[in-house]
Design a protein around this nucleic acid. Sequence first.
DNA 1: GAACATGTATACTGCACAGTATCGTATCCA
DNA 2: TGGATACGATACTGTGCAGTATACATGTTC
Lengths: 216, 216
Amino acid sequence: MNNAGDRGRRGRPRDPERMRRVLEAASSQFMRQGFGNTSMDAVARASGVSKVTIYRYFPTKEALFEACIKGRTQAVFSDLSPAELDPNDPRGALTRMAERFVALKRSDLGIGAFRAMYAAGGQQEAACRAFFRQGPAQLVAQVARYLEAAQKAGSVALDDATRAADQFLALFFGVADIRALLGLGKPTTQQDREIIAQNVRMFLKAYGVGDAGPKP
Amino acid sequence: MNNAGDRGRRGRPRDPERMRRVLEAASSQFMRQGFGNTSMDAVARASGVSKVTIYRYFPTKEALFEACIKGRTQAVFSDLSPAELDPNDPRGALTRMAERFVALKRSDLGIGAFRAMYAAGGQQEAACRAFFRQGPAQLVAQVARYLEAAQKAGSVALDDATRAADQFLALFFGVADIRALLGLGKPTTQQDREIIAQNVRMFLKAYGVGDAGPKP
DNA sequence: GAACATGTATACTGCACAGTATCGTATCCA
DNA sequence: TGGATACGATACTGTGCAGTATACATGTTC
């Protein structure tokens, strides 16, 4: 049975399962080895789909790459919803958001995504733009939304929520993160917990109201 | 005339000028396009040194790459010496260090270095290690050294200078920096000035003593 | 069943590039 | 002057890979 879009098409319908396999295999390879070191033959082999078929869906290697980015960034960043975070408990809320963020960033996927995108920087502009919009920009917006709620609740004091959100997330791009991106070893879970605690504390010393923050 | 190491060598001595040209051309290309997209033929062409000669000095492309990193990281990071910074004026000192750091990071060289290294991550471990040691690690140590002096002078209050230095530098890895690394456009000098001012202010709200910081 | 789109398998073209071989030349030392 | 080493120019080998061509099989719709 065809879906509505293919109504009236004469020949054999496309098999979406195949494309799913192609995108999965290609994403995995791109994230692990980058764009340059991934061959279409390897993708075909890993996905079990013939190279010719892949080229029927994606006219060039670049097009396949971009499709992978679009799919993966959503998977990487979408499950971070601050909807139910308590505006009166910034320490807890920020810690929870940071935990999610760090977990994503430390995953092979997160590391691979940043690596592949940086490597592609300046040469795959469309893909980079998509990555930025659906990745980092999205995250900052989400944190900023929470900070605005906390600001209204009087638990933080800041003048620009977006900038503060940017600063908060940037704190997790320190040497530990650089080391991980360079492939020199990830921090342990315990070390990450420590980093998160220190960064939340530092952030709240600057912007918090109450125990750790400056009284206005 | 030969130098001491070549004393007694029979034939024609090596020409260091040639190697300088090779390293310069190779660095430029590696930083601009990354490891994978730079060909030895192009390096030979750009440097005016024949490929065979290059291979006499560097057995493989990887070896040349590593030599470039070693040379460039020193050039990039070494001119940031906080020796004469005033421990009693953390706002001014941090601003000056940040200005230097941001200028380096925004240069084609700085962007290229990070890009190339991230792209090489997991595949050129020796080069990455050298880059990390002589780059980010060095910088954090320098900032930490200043913060310790300021701590002694009583102008900041912190418990771990190295971590604080790491946090300070990490603040400059926010979305503006990500955009630049992705090739989506650098911030203007004015915007960078703004970013620096905001980050210094935020840092001193957390750790400063006096006007902006919390009294202990 | 005819017409048509999707799929596989395999071989091929064309190109870029790492690294080598050869030969001739330039420059140093003894 | 002669032996030794550093260079250049050029052509070559081998390989990996993007993308194509061809021939055939499979499923869908009319």
